[in-house]
Amino acid sequence: MSQTFFGGVSFILSKYWSLFLRGTAITLVVSLTGTIFGFLIGLIVALLRTIPVHKTDKPLKKLSVRFLSFILSSYIEIFRGTPMIVQAMVIYYGGLSKALSGLHDVYKGIAAAIIIISINTGAYMAEIIRGGIISVDPGQMEGALSIGMTYRQAMFNVVFPQAIRNIMPSIGNEFVVNIKDSSVLNVISVAELYFMSKSAAGAYLRYFEVFFITAVIYFILTFTVTRILRVIERKMEGKDSYTIHGSQSYSKASIHITSESKSIIGGGLK
């Protein structure tokens, strides 16, 4: 084997490319799926935690809301307050391993990883989404309630879409964090990118070369994902142009307004 750095790198790549590829695939799968499920968990938790309680509500509802909010905030505090690597050990050896024992090793690892990342991400997402909901101008909720929408209709049609738009950067950030932090799941033998790299490095004891490759792969993943998320964010801004219609008697007339130019493009009264 070559003693130069680049020689080593190319040797490792040619020998272990499929290992890196599988590790990368598993890293992407568990971090993406974990982020999505984490988002769903966080969504439910945040919606439950933002339910308003009225003085006129029945005592049973008040009590159950208070109990639920105690449970949910405990979940958030515990999972934000301990490292995911420790959570992985506790959950995996505290029963998850047994529960998944019917599965083939690779799938068992993937399933365990998704479950742990989802629970962990859910705790962060819950606070991100709650923050997004309370950051939307309360007037939006009031406007919706004032035309007779129920709290739920107002939340899903008016407040939540605006909250999501506002927290999109934070949601994307969680995904990027998960791509990197899923590496800690090597402690429960999930065959993700870091775990695969460790195996590759151990065979020839070429740690520097192997983990240089690993670092490049992680960076490409996060950088690409960040770019894609920016495109999605921009799409969610909504159109920045609109058409002015003529009055009903001149329904064919229209003027197109774009925000960049603030100029009138075509159309006009006929």
Partner: peptide, 10 residues
């Protein structure tokens, strides 16, 4: 309302 409260996402 004083602040209109039109739904900003629509």
């Amino acid at each position: 309302f004083q602040q209109f409260n039109l739904f900003n996402n629509m």
